[in-house]
Nucleic acid binder design. Structure first.
Lengths: 120, 120
DNA sequence: TCTATATATGAATATCTGTTCATATGTTAA
DNA sequence: TTAACATATGAACAGATATTCATATATAGA
């Protein structure tokens, strides 16, 4: 992902060769890092965080979520699509109603870790 | 955070009263949810993710990071400020050089959880 | 079929964000 | 002090993003 590090940096090399090598060898591929950033971007919006939190407790339909959070149906629907694309939520249709729920436990764990940092 | 839920939703209430109450009672305060989203927003950029990954292995100066990642010094400096404001990195000055390192283990854990979701 | 309801989608817009460029600050050595 | 270097910062610009509005799709019931 990075350029071949040149022999010197700021006039001399603070980082010795071994460390440079270790940093570069442990760095995941660019594409993975990009996907990771994309994932966190999804968590980086308070409307989506609220949706996910609401789904912690119960399976909910679009309209319920909109009511609970005081956000328009359209806005919720757009955000649910984002969450769906990231495989963070799943859904089932029941007649006219579509129920959404958390896709798996990663969501809880990721939010849990973030919460620890925020509330300490 | 949410409006008082009205008695009906989509014409009838999919969510029974108890569930509504539980969702609302378990929901953290708006300010906390906002902070949480702000935190994840910081992780939601591939340049910042790369910086954090580089710091997994070693304490690095601004110039080293820029070289390793192939990004301009100015861009790195701006992003380090964001990471610093979120208390994800700390730094020490040594002469003209400023060395950055991870603030604590939350960073590793949060990225680790995200990585699990991305690479599965 | 037609109507009502629940949800989804596309376009438009205002806001936010990351990078670049120019420049300032802080430190060392001469 | 002056020069050189490492880093930080402010303004500007381009690109991304969340919401709104209008409308489309899907399902149920009459």
């Amino acid at each position: 992902m990075a350029k071949e590090p040149v022999a010197e940096c700021c006039g001399f090399l603070h980082l010795h060769e071994e460390a440079v090598h270790k940093v570069l060898s442990e760095m995941p591929p660019d594409e993975t890092l990009y996907d990771l950033a994309e994932l966190f971007k999804v968590f980086g919006d308070s409307t989506r965080i609220k949706i996910l939190y609401a789904l912690f407790e119960a399976e909910l339909c679009v309209c319920d979520i909109a009511q609970l959070l005081g956000v328009s149906q359209t806005a919720i629907s757009h955000q649910l699509r984002v969450l769906k694309n990231s495989k963070l939520v799943k859904f089932r249709r029941d007649g006219k109603t579509v129920f959404y729920s958390l896709a798996d436990d990663h969501v809880r764990r990721i939010i849990g870790q973030g919460m620890e940092h925020v509330t300490e």
